[in-house]
Computed example of a mutant assay.
Amino acid sequence: MEVVFYDIKIGIGIARAEGTLAFIFVPYEMLILSIFKKLRIFPIQNSHFLIFLIITCGISILFTHFLGQKNEEYIGYFHKFESHKNNAVWHVISSMFFIGAVCAGIISIMWWHES
Rank of each mutant, 00 (worst) to 15 (best):
M30P: 04
M30N: 11
M30K: 14
M30Q: 13
L31E: 02
L31K: 11
L31R: 09
L31W: 13
I32L: 10
I32D: 00
I32M: 06
I32T: 05
I32Q: 02
L33F: 13
L33R: 11
L33P: 00
L33G: 00
S34R: 06
S34L: 03
S34M: 05
S34P: 03
I35C: 02
I35V: 11
I35G: 02
F36L: 09
F36M: 12
K37E: 00
K38A: 09
K38L: 09
K38C: 04
K38V: 08
L39A: 06
L39E: 02
R40A: 00
R40T: 03
I41W: 05
I41H: 00
I41C: 00
F42C: 00
F42A: 00
F42W: 13
P43A: 04
P43L: 06
P43G: 07
P43R: 11
I44G: 02
Q45P: 04
Q45H: 06
N46E: 11
N46P: 05
N46S: 12
S47N: 04
S47R: 07
S47E: 10
S47I: 10
H48I: 11
F49E: 03
F49N: 02
F49D: 04
L50D: 02
L50M: 10
L50F: 14
I51F: 15
I51S: 12
I51N: 12
I51H: 13
I51V: 15
F52V: 03
F52T: 04
L53H: 08
L53N: 09
L53T: 12
L53Q: 10
L53P: 05
L53W: 14
I54N: 07
I54P: 02
I54G: 07
I54M: 12
I54T: 14
I55K: 06
I55N: 01
I55V: 13
I55Q: 05
T56K: 13
T56P: 03
T56L: 05
T56G: 10
T56I: 11
T56E: 09
T56R: 12
C57L: 15
C57G: 14
C57E: 11
G58M: 07
G58H: 08
G58A: 06
I59T: 07
S60K: 03
S60V: 05
S60D: 01
S60I: 03
S60Q: 02
I61F: 15
I61A: 08
L62N: 04
F63L: 08
F63G: 01
F63S: 03
T64D: 01
T64R: 03
T64S: 04
H65N: 03
F66K: 04
F66E: 01
F66D: 00
Q69V: 10
Q69S: 08
K70M: 07
K70A: 08
N71Q: 11
N71Y: 10
E72T: 13
E72Y: 14
E73V: 15
Y74C: 02
Y74I: 07
Y74S: 05
